[in-house]
């Protein structure tokens, strides 16, 4: 894939390639496992979910994707840029925007528009262009009316949407959300899910969502399930969710509808595997 295609943002194909990557955390003598032999490809415009419980290595993988840590073995490339390439590390980080768990710890300014301007300012974007980007990014997360306000009075979901806008203003190709819904209440989580799915569908943004909530993975194009530093399952939500043994191995919890349908199937009922409540209802109503 040529660089020119990358710039336009419409090229098909792989944005992120992780090739047989291993990484361990070392502090002195102590070594703790990060990820082991992980390979995966994320294509442009995909909505990818990395599932795993605490300590499964999913956050380490996220840190590998934008060069916060570099692999001990294997390579991570983003649009052809190796994360080991120190010369282009900021170019890479601007392409792979990362939103973290706690929105409060990601904001640097006390007025929302200034906070959003921070990323583009660091990249040396001209002033008029920054103005446009702020308007665009706030509109993309439906927070335009808060532009001149302080983030302190916002709800958790709203703060996290501002954090997303702050990353969007850098015009990334990929948006990584590292457990960004973990601290939110159900309403806040729904807000974030709605926002990122809309960004993915309408703006064609590649989204990588890292979470341990399986219900957030239902709408994904592709799921990778991680356990003990390895990818133990991958595929569409239907493929991954119906592999109930793998889900149990990864100590994850199936959404209620899937759980019920899986149990019913085991009990001998002839219903399809359900991902959502609607599918379960349909399946049950179809029973003779």
């Amino acid at each position: 894939m040529s660089d020119k295609n990358c710039e336009t943002g419409h090229a098909e194909g792989a944005v992120i390639k992780v090739d047989n990557v291993s990484y361990d955390y070392r502090s002195g003598e102590h070594v703790s496992r990060g990820v082991r032999g992980v390979s995966l490809v994320v294509n442009r415009g995909e909505f990818v979910v990395l599932l795993g419980h605490n300590g499964s290595g999913k956050s380490t993988l996220a840190k590998l994707l934008n060069g916060f840590v570099v692999p001990d073995e294997g390579t991570v490339t983003v649009e052809g840029i190796d994360t080991r390439d120190n010369e282009r590390i900021y170019e890479l980080r601007a392409k792979v925007g990362m939103v973290f768990q706690n929105a409060d710890n990601q904001m640097v300014a006390s007025v929302i528009e200034n906070d959003i301007a921070f990323g583009p300012e660091n990249l040396g974007v001209p002033r008029e262009e920054i103005e446009k980007r702020i308007t665009w990014a706030l509109d993309a997360v439906n927070m335009s009316e808060h532009r001149k306000r302080s983030p302190n009075k916002l709800s958790g979901g709203q703060k996290q949407r501002i954090a997303i806008a702050a990353i969007l203003a850098m015009y990334p190709d990929v948006l990584i959300l590292d457990e960004s819904t973990a601290m939110l209440d159900p309403k806040g989580r729904a807000e974030i899910m709605e926002t990122i799915q809309r960004l993915n569908k309408e703006k064609g943004l590649t989204v990588i969502l890292i979470t341990h909530y399986m219900d957030e993975a239902i709408a994904a194009d592709k799921i990778f399930v991680m356990n003990e530093g390895r990818v133990i399952a991958e595929g569409t939500p239907r493929e991954v969710f119906s592999a109930t043994d793998k889900i149990a191995e990864a100590k994850l919890e199936l959404p209620v509808a899937s759980k019920i349908s899986a149990e019913l199937r085991r009990a001998g009922l002839d219903i399809p595997f359900a991902l959502t409540d609607e599918e379960l209802t349909e399946g049950l109503c179809g029973l003779k």
């Binding site: 934008n66 921070f118 583009p120 990249l123 002033r127 103005e131």
Partner: peptide, 19 residues
Amino acid sequence: LALALDARCYNATPNRTRY
């Protein structure tokens, strides 16, 4: 916060602009 600053390319260029 340190990670978030890095993620937003703090110190990426000496030619930082100003909004």
